[in-house]
């Protein structure tokens, strides 16, 4: 309850509205869930779009919203190694808290994540980005499944996907086992 009283009513309401909107009109490739304990921290999951080196990868990251949320931009982190961004580093985008001057309160969680995804499939460098070859990116995309299901928060927030990944990995393991046998 104390946490609730600290977070201003606007931010909470606004994030709730965003959440409901996101549930109602899902955005392709993107899922996002707030932490049950703290609505200001959201975890997102971006599925690598087809025709990109990220195909088949699951990219898990988090958005940390300030308490003045719709008036100030959130911090954007990516947790899964992608070959595009550094892990667990604040990313410098025009929609992230590096640039409060270009922020616009009309932007929602959905718009932020769409922006992040479109920036991710580009090659433009920024603070917090890394350069790597397509090969590395594909490799990392494959590895991202295993990486993500080792993250506890990920498993808690995205149980359906965790389950899917687990089963697919089991199938693969059994397949490899069988082929080895």
């Amino acid at each position: 309850m104390s946490k609730r009283s600290k977070v201003p009513i606007t931010a909470t309401q606004r994030l709730k509205q965003d959440y409901m909107r996101l549930k109602k009109d899902p955005i392709p490739y993107i899922t996002a869930e707030p932490l049950p304990s703290n609505i200001l921290e959201w975890h997102y999951l971006v599925t690598g779009p087809d025709d990109t080196p990220y195909t088949g990868g699951f990219y898990h990251g988090k958005l940390v919203f300030p308490r003045e949320f719709p008036f100030r931009p959130p911090a954007i982190y990516m947790i899964t190694p992608s070959g595009r961004f550094k892990c667990n580093t604040r990313l410098c985008l025009s929609i992230s808290d590096f640039h409060p001057d270009t922020w616009n309160p009309a932007w929602s969680v959905g718009t932020i994540l769409t922006g992040l995804l479109s920036f991710m499939v580009e090659e433009t460098p920024t603070l917090g980005s890394v350069e790597s070859s397509d090969f590395t990116k594909r490799n990392l995309a494959v590895c991202s499944r295993l990486f993500n299901i080792q993250n506890k928060t990920f498993c808690e927030l995205f149980p359906a996907i965790t389950e899917k990944i687990r089963s697919s990995i089991e199938i693969r393991d059994s397949l490899t086992l069988r082929s080895q046998n």
């Binding site: 606004r14 509205q17 965003d18 008036f71 009309a106 929602s108």
Partner: peptide
Amino acid sequence: MDDDEDICRVCRST
């Protein structure tokens, strides 16, 4: 879709 209902661009409420 509740597009016919106007919402605030900042707080998303009606």
